[in-house]
Every structure is written in C-alpha cells, then in structure tokens.
C-alpha cells in the first residue's frame, strides 16, 4: 500500500475458538479514501476479523489500530468515526426506523442526534422513518443500517456481506452509495464472497483463506494482464503451433477458442514474442495477455472450488 498512515492497521492478529483457528497471524493495511474488498469463502475468517476490528471480540495475539488508535486500549478514539454493519443489520423491531437511529445516536453523542434526519434522507428512508422496523423489507433494513453508519460522519464504513438478501435494484443502490462514500473521501471496507461486486466496487482487495491472508493489493493488479499467458490469434494456427514448439521460453501452446493459449516459462520473453513469430513466418493478427477475472484469481488463491463451508 502507498499511504504512510493506513486507516486500518492489523499486525500479527490471531484468534482461535477452542481448538479451531479462525484467524492466524494476519497483517493488513487499508489505505484511507478507498473501497477495500475483503474476500474469502464462508468461514474463512472475514467476520472474525471485522469483529476484532470493531472491538467486539479481542484478538488472542497481535494489534489492531484504527486511524492510528489502538482498538483495545483507546476504543472511543478508534471507533468514534467508524460506522459498521456486522453480518446483517439488526434493529429493535418494535421501534421505528427513526427511533432505532436515536437509540444508537444517543450512545454516539449529541452531534449524532442531529444527523438522524440527513442520514435517513441520504438512504431514501425519510418517508418510512416513522414506521416500525418490523414492517421493513431486507433492502430497507440494509439502507437503515447504512444510515446508522452515517450518524458519526464516518471516516471508515465497514460492511459485512452487504449484498446478502438484496434484489438487483438494492445492489445497484448499494454500489452507488459505496462509490459516493469513496468520492467523499471515506474508506469503505467491504467483506464479501460476491466477487463480481467486489471487482466492480473496490480499488483494493485482500483475500483470506482459512484465516490466513493469501493475497493483497490493487484489484487492477490482481486481475490484470498476465505476464506469462497470452492468447495468440493468427491466420494459420497449425503453422503457428509448429513454430511455437521451437521457442525456448514457451512451456505450452494449445488451441483455446479461436486462439492459441501460449504459456511462457520466462515472463520477460513476452516482449519479443511477436517479432520472433513474424520473423518465423507466422501471420500474427493479435497477441494479448490473458486477463484473469477476480473469480479466477480468487479460486486459484484459495483452491477450494466446490468446497462446502459452514
């Protein structure tokens, strides 16, 4: 990461429940002012990390800092400008939307009370604010949860599986809200296993598997063009395959759709490949690095295709 003072700073964080290790030696830096995706299968440890971030459960080892403040010893400073939805937004069903926000605002402080109206306006719930939450749909509860986050003018918004139970309209609305929050300079930390959403919304991503961090970086880098895999389109595939079999850096070349998928043993060999092919008499139409989807990368990193995780 590039920023000197990350908004979220985890070092060597571990957490076990009895004999089961939920999170193991996790270190993470989340820069300010971005949407940061936190990916993992169900049961990978995402929610445990979020609960430790928010001081809901203490880590067995390691340190958690938010905005430079240690969560364990300076909770109010660390969490004072953090809004969060953990697992799913929950409310007192017998209270109205407005009253539910008032309950949390009372704990946050007087300024939060003044933000109830604007927060409800922002998420489009002002006209239902006086209805009991028991009558709200899942999407409305999700929006009310976001309104609750906004009561503190948050620097950091933590959303745990925010698209769960949302219809396509709700997902679109959530995506727009996240983009708007980032544009306002806020940081949004989104935990999810919906890879497509993360790819659309986030600039950075971390992948956690069995409680361990297995990848971290800008989404563009993680899904970006490969330096060792190329798709070659040419007029005579057979001739090209013959020529490619003689190239010392090519480890494999096989037809793939209308192209040839070329794999290089040395990533530096990619730059001279077109020239070499043309000189060898291959009529090259195009040679493009293979672009992986986030899903491809995620599955290759976690290697748990088809697993059923609780």
């Amino acid at each position: 990461m590039t920023t000197a003072t990350p908004l979220i700073h985890l070092r060597g964080v571990s957490k076990s429940y009895g004999p089961r290790t939920a999170v193991s030696d996790l270190s993470l830096d989340v820069p300010a002012g971005c949407a940061y995706g936190f990916l993992g299968h169900n049961g990978a440890g995402k929610t445990t990390v979020i609960r430790m971030l928010l001081g809901l459960t203490p880590p067995d080892a390691g340190t958690v800092h938010l905005d430079g403040h240690p969560v364990d010893s300076d909770r109010l400073a660390a969490l004072g400008r953090v809004g969060a939805i953990v697992e799913e937004p929950r409310f007192h069903p017998h209270l109205t939307g407005w009253e539910n926000l008032r309950v949390v605002a009372a704990v946050r402080g007087p300024q939060a009370l003044r933000r109830i109206g604007p927060a409800l306006e922002r998420v489009g719930l002002a006209d239902r604010a006086r209805d009991r939450v028991a009558t709200y749909s899942q999407g409305m509860r999700q929006r009310l949860g976001i309104a609750r986050c906004l009561l503190v003018d948050p620097k950091l918004i933590v959303l745990d599986e925010p698209t769960n139970g949302l219809d396509p309209g709700g997902i679109l609305q959530l995506r727009q809200l996240v983009a708007a929050f980032v544009a306002e300079g806020r940081t949004v930390f989104v935990s999810s296993h919906v890879l497509d959403e993360i790819e659309r919304v986030c600039q950075y991503v971390a992948v956690i598997d069995r409680g361990r961090l297995v990848a971290e970086g800008p989404v563009a880098e993680l899904v970006g063009g490969s330096a060792t895999e190329y798709d070659l389109v040419c007029r005579d595939q057979q001739a090209a395959l013959t020529v490619l079999s003689t190239h010392p850096a090519v480890t494999s070349a096989a037809p793939s759709g209308g192209a040839i998928r070329v794999t290089l043993g040395d990533p530096r060999a990619g730059t001279g490949l077109v020239t070499w092919l043309v000189r060898s008499g291959v009529d090259v139409v195009s040679l493009t690095p293979v672009r992986h989807s986030l899903e491809d990368r995620f599955l290759s990193l976690t290697s748990r295709v088809g697993d059923q995780h609780a």
Binding site: L76, A78, V82, A84, V86, H92, V104, V107, R108
Partner: peptide
C-alpha cells in the same frame, strides 16, 4: 436483555462507548 435479544448490542458496543456505561 432487549439489546442482546434483538442483536443490537454489538452495534452499541461497536461505537466504542464503555460497555459498563451501556
């Protein structure tokens, strides 16, 4: 029990406010 029963306690605890005060 009301905050716990409605799973709202964690949202109150996540404000950073003293739990004893809660």
């Amino acid at each position: 029990v009301t905050d716990l029963a409605n799973h709202v306690f964690r949202d109150l605890a996540a404000t950073g406010r003293s739990r004893v005060l809660l």
